[in-house]
């Protein structure tokens, strides 16, 4: 879709990172408030990876899925 601003590798990395943070936060590996914070924080990369759209990228007009389009700028 036209709103997607993440490359495939970016999406997969975010999903893995998010699941890892969720595991660290909710498994008790990291205890206390910081662990809970990490667990909740993990949903951010997980969801942005699943959707393929990063709001920070959008704000700064950045994208990681532009490597192909540099060669095909003209239509």
């Amino acid at each position: 879709m036209s709103f997607i601003n993440e490359a495939s590798w970016d999406r997969i990395a975010r999903v893995v990172l998010g699941a890892g943070l969720i595991f660290l936060g909710f498994s008790g590996t990291i205890e206390g408030g910081f662990g809970t914070f990490l667990g909740i924080l993990g949903f951010v990369p997980l969801i942005t990876g699943l959707v393929g759209w990063c709001p920070l990228y959008a704000i700064f007009n950045y994208r990681t899925n532009n490597e192909v389009t540099k060669e095909t700028a003209g239509i």
Binding site: V15, V16, A19, I22, F23, F26, S27, L46, G49, L50
Partner: peptide, 22 residues
């Protein structure tokens, strides 16, 4: 295919993290 791979992998990882978290 990309969406299906990302969603499937994300789901499995999330389920795995859940299983290992309690």
């Amino acid at each position: 295919r990309e969406d299906r791979i990302v969603w499937g992998a994300g789901g499995l990882l999330l389920a795995g993290a859940g299983l290992l978290s309690g």
